[in-house]
Design a protein around this nucleic acid. Structure first.
Lengths: 193, 193
DNA sequence: AGTCATTCTTAAGATATCTTAATTTTTACC
DNA sequence: GGTAAAAATTAAGATATCTTAAGAATGACT
């Protein structure tokens, strides 16, 4: 079994037990792709056709605000799904960009194939229900916590809870994600030491 | 068909088409309950056993922060589901409270019954996948938008987008939800007029 | 209608965070 | 290894928001 398929299998079986035939059928609908650093998986105003499973790499989701600044709303690394949910689920134009932060290899699951798979494999529906529930929980936590925390706490929290991200992502991107100006984040870091 | 069952049927069919027999089977697993204003549906440190579908009323989800202040993280009114997701899904003690903001009638769906229903009705699994996706999208939007907005924008946005909530919930609760002190919200409102 | 509890408002001083602009450090590439 | 581009730091002044404390308005119950 190719390494990629192993990786997907391990991931899937964390949620629901699939047998090899099922994994094969699902894997067949996935397309492997590599994106060089800084290339876009999705651009603003286009419909997000895929949900991406990151085999290796880092991807960010961001939009450009009224002042022309990039606002990062999500990061994803190895073994995470990333897409612009609203665009992907409803197949409407995206308000955000998906971009590789470093060279990144993904498995692409198209909306079309996903719907086909749901029909043939109810287990997959269960898996994505569980995955979506986990994403929801994570996001609820994020908004509960981040909205109430001061900048410094958000930064400390981020570095502690997501060290893998903190290491692989430049500081100004972390600042953007945490809604802190890079200048102020720099000052906070100085205070800490 | 009783009014409650009609309401649930209408709601369910927005997502997936169920026939009357299926609605009956599901409805049977739901327990109707009324909570007087200010009573708790869930207290901190207890496991949230139910997902609540609000037939009529207003419920808030909140926790007590380090300074002893209530921090509201969610509101729900008629035709919304509310629960403490993390506690309900993983059946672990809740860090938050669920409380009726006004007299509220709900349908209680226990975790146990939900799992039973999933097994017998794959359509329900689909429905909750879709419901969960919508919740996720709404929450992603909330964190994208609220974290970047200034207090005044958050308030304006809230009042415009959720007028039903804004009318039925006291101002100091809105302030808590938007992470603004009631005093400052009061000042912002004055500026606006 | 009267009273108590709840909710909302006002204002002054304190703190957190941003803005701008310039400087230094690090990284990427020829 | 040298140079341009990208990223991080520093500092001063401006703004947003909080804290505290007090008072006013509203609502609930007898």
């Amino acid at each position: 079994m190719p390494k990629m398929k192993e990786q997907i299998k391990t991931y899937f079986n964390r949620y629901v037990e699939f047998d090899d035939a099922e994994i094969d059928a699902i894997y067949e609908k996935l397309e492997e792709k590599t994106f060089k650093k800084k290339t876009f998986l999705l651009e603003e105003n286009t419909i997000c056709r895929h949900n991406y499973f990151i085999l290796k790499g880092v991807v960010r989701l961001f939009y450009i605000d009224a002042k022309g600044h990039e606002k990062i709303t999500q990061f994803a690394i190895d073994n995470w799904w990333i897409t612009h949910m609203e665009s992907f689920i409803n197949q409407i134009p995206s308000s955000q960009y998906l971009q590789a932060v470093e060279d990144t290899t993904v498995l692409c699951l198209s909306k079309h194939n996903l719907e086909l798979l749901y029909k043939e494999h109810p287990k997959l529906e269960r898996m994505f229900r569980l995955v979506t529930e986990n994403m929801l929980i994570a996001n609820l936590r994020k908004s509960d916590i981040y909205l109430q925390m001061k900048s410094k706490e958000r930064y400390t929290f981020f570095v502690e809870k997501l060290p893998d991200f903190a290491q692989r992502v430049p500081q100004y991107m972390i600042a953007s994600y945490l809604e802190i100006t890079p200048e102020y984040l720099s000052e906070l870091r100085r205070q800490r030491n």
